[in-house]
Amino acid sequence: NQASVVANTLIPINTALTLVMMRSEVVTPVGIPAEDIPRLVSMTVNRAVPLGTTLMPDMVKGYA
């Protein structure tokens, strides 16, 4: 099973992502692959992402 990116904290809308905000976890449904974490750093989220939420491609500006 592939690990996905999961919010390690509440990420407010329009926040630039940092490494400490994200962790990898095997979850269903599958979200952004964990190997993309380095690429996500400094990208911003377009909605509030609660703790434990899987990051989906449409949640990160410029990812999809």
Rank of each mutant, 00 (worst) to 15 (best):
L19D: 04
L51V: 12
N46I: 10
R39Q: 07
S42M: 15
R39N: 05
M43T: 04
T54G: 03
A3Y: 10
A3F: 11
L17K: 00
P33A: 10
P38K: 11
M56E: 14
N8K: 11
N1P: 15
G62P: 07
S4M: 02
A3L: 11
R39T: 10
T28F: 09
V26P: 10
V30C: 06
I13K: 09
T15E: 10
P33D: 08
L40C: 03
N1F: 11
E25S: 11
P12T: 12
T53L: 13
L51P: 12
P38G: 11
P57A: 13
R23I: 06
V30L: 12
L55R: 01
Y63D: 03
M22E: 00
L40A: 00
A48H: 14
T9H: 15
L40T: 00
P50E: 13
N1W: 10
L55S: 00
V27W: 03
S4E: 01
P50K: 12
K61V: 11
M21P: 00
T53R: 14
T28H: 07
P50G: 13
A3M: 09
E25W: 05
L51M: 14
K61H: 11
E25G: 09
L55N: 01
R47W: 08
M56H: 07
N46W: 08
T54M: 04
V60A: 01
N46A: 09
T53P: 01
V27P: 00
A34V: 09
S42V: 03
L55K: 00
N1G: 11
T18Q: 06
V26R: 03
D36L: 12
P12Q: 09
M56C: 09
V41W: 03
E35W: 08
Q2F: 14
V20T: 14
T9I: 15
D58M: 08
P33T: 10
V5S: 03
A7K: 02
V20N: 09
T28G: 05
N14Y: 14
E35P: 09
D58I: 12
P12K: 07
M59V: 13
T53H: 15
P12V: 15
V26A: 11
I32P: 01
V20A: 11
I37K: 13
I11K: 00
I32L: 08
